[in-house]
């Protein structure tokens, strides 16, 4: 599903993003990418969503080869992923419903299909009643739920979340993680970059630890601190 083969990314200012990382993530897995700030978590995700390309090595995502992908194919790669960010990244002048519908409109889904799927996705994240609210009328947790619904609505094979709970209180964070787990149970591969110990420890999922761009451990059912 996702394969990093000796992938290295050095930024123009010399900062090491990733260094010789080789990782294989299979379909249906739930993986935490952990590490301190600057450890390479974000670079790892950016390579998956083609925000960056590797300087050396190869990255394969859902059958797409990221390192020599034509520009016109990037949208298709991204449509096969559901992406959730720490800062939610909702379109400010669209309602919750419209934000989720937008993801379906770009894949030119039938209007009938959109009318059916969007309420389902919003229902799944528990926001069925706030469909008409604009992002600024929603709490942080609610906005992240909308972002989740948007990421899910096209049934992506992989869901990527970059610090999805970074802006949320512990209780809401846990709710969001439970949602991600539920989504994973339905067969979607979930990759979460985080540095929140409590969450990682509570979930007991595969944990990939990065440090200064290098992969230092990769443990099934790991903990944040178990010096794998």
């Amino acid at each position: 599903m996702i394969r990093f083969i000796d992938a290295t990314k050095i930024y123009p200012n010399g900062a090491v993003g990733l260094k010789n990382v080789t990782v294989n993530i299979e379909k249906g897995e739930f993986v935490f990418i952990i590490g301190a700030s600057g450890s390479g978590k974000s670079t790892f995700l950016k390579l998956i969503m083609h925000e960056e390309t590797p300087d050396e090595g190869e990255v394969y995502v859902n059958g797409y080869s990221v390192h020599n992908m034509p520009k016109s194919e990037i949208p298709y790669l991204r449509r096969s992923l559901g992406i959730v960010f720490q800062d939610f990244r909702l379109l400010p002048n669209k309602t919750a419903y419209e934000n989720v519908a937008f993801a379906m409109q770009i894949v030119e889904a039938q209007p009938r299909e959109i009318r059916r799927q969007v309420p389902l996705a919003l229902g799944l994240v528990g926001l069925g009643k706030k469909a008409k609210a604009y992002p600024n009328q929603l709490s942080g947790g609610e906005q992240q739920r909308v972002a989740l619904a948007r990421a899910l609505v096209n049934n992506p094979a992989v869901l990527i979340a970059d610090e999805p709970t970074g802006n949320l209180d512990p209780k809401t964070s846990l709710e969001i993680m439970e949602l991600l787990d539920e989504i994973n149970q339905r067969g979607t591969t979930v990759i979460v970059a985080t540095h929140e110990k409590s969450i990682v420890d509570a979930m007991k999922k595969r944990v990939i630890t990065l440090d200064r761009g290098e992969l230092v451990s990769d443990v099934k059912k790991g903990l944040y601190t178990n010096e794998n």
Partner: peptide
């Protein structure tokens, strides 16, 4: 920002 978001969601 809006344009950036659209790109991330996979808009052409």
């Amino acid at each position: 920002k809006e344009i950036e978001i659209m790109k991330y969601v996979g808009a052409s």
